[in-house]
Structure formats: structure tokens, C-alpha cells
């Protein structure tokens, strides 16, 4: 290979230097949210179990676990994760069927996904924390 086209190898991705368009961040967060939901599935299934069990101990346990501040924070995080994943998932499905592929529309929908999922997290999160 002539030296002028030999590229310096190996190449590294300097993650802190990469600048992404907003849709890029929305995409990464879709992955992060999916992974987070996956990792927390045992907690969620356990809570489902406690919420449905008929014994009084389960009811008390459910109250104690969901009343714990750390658990509340985790659930708040998972709430955002689900809402972001949900909204972004719908955006991806729409783009799959050729809706919103244009650069401008794709940017607008990425903004919408971020904003809508944050607003919904606020609305449902305040409910979760018992604010209303």
C-alpha cells in the first residue's frame, strides 16, 4: 500500500470528543433505557408479585419496598426509561415505515421524544412520589 493512503492504525474512538446530533443522543438513550429496563426486570416482577399477592404480609411488604427512598428513585428512573423507550420506539417504527425520514422531521421528532418523555416522567413521577 502506498504510504499516502496508509491510515494510522489502530484507530480509537475518543468518546468525549464525539459530537452527536440530538437524534444521536436520543438513540443512545433508547439503548440505555432498554438495557436499564432489562437489568431491573427482577425488581419489577417482584413488585408485580407483591402487588397481586393476597396475603397481608405481601401488601405490607409492597408498601415498605415502594416507600423506600432508593426504590422510589430507581422506579423514577425506570419510569423515564420506559417512557423514553416507548416514545423513541414509536419514532423508530414510524421511520421504519418511511414516516419522518427527512432530516428536519427526524430532528423535530427526536426533540419531541426527549421533551415528551421528560414531561410525562414529571407528570407520572409526581404521582408516583405521592405529590397529588
Amino acid at each position: 500500500m502506498p504510504p499516502e493512503i496508509r491510515k494510522p492504525r489502530p484507530k480509537y474512538l475518543a468518546l468525549h470528543q464525539i459530537r452527536l446530533p440530538l437524534a444521536g443522543y436520543a438513540s443512545i438513550l433508547h439503548r440505555v433505557s432498554g438495557a436499564g429496563l432489562f437489568l431491573m426486570l427482577p425488581l419489577l416482577i417482584w413488585l408485580l408479585q407483591l402487588s397481586l399477592a393476597s396475603s397481608a404480609e405481601s401488601a405490607a411488604m409492597f408498601g415498605a419496598v415502594t416507600g423506600n427512598l432508593l426504590v422510589k428513585l430507581i422506579l423514577l428512573g425506570l419510569l423515564w426509561a420506559f417512557l423514553h423507550h416507548f416514545c423513541m420506539g414509536i419514532r423508530i417504527l414510524l421511520i421504519d415505515i418511511q414516516i419522518g425520514v427527512e432530516k428536519q422531521q427526524a430532528h423535530a421528532s427526536a426533540v419531541a421524544v426527549m421533551v415528551v418523555s421528560l414531561i410525562l416522567t414529571l407528570i407520572f413521577g409526581l404521582k408516583l412520589l405521592g405529590a397529588y
Binding site: 426486570l41 427482577p42 416482577i45 408485580l48 408479585q49 397481586l52
Partner: peptide, 16 residues
């Protein structure tokens, strides 16, 4: 993990 979770979750709703 996922197959186990599926069994666990199905068992929760199936005996209601």
C-alpha cells in the same frame, strides 16, 4: 435470565 423471568411472571398472573 429471560426464560426464567417469563416463567416467574406468568406464574404470578396465572394463579390469580
Amino acid at each position: 435470565a429471560l426464560v426464567g423471568y417469563a416463567g416467574w411472571a406468568v406464574q404470578i398472573i396465572w394463579r390469580l
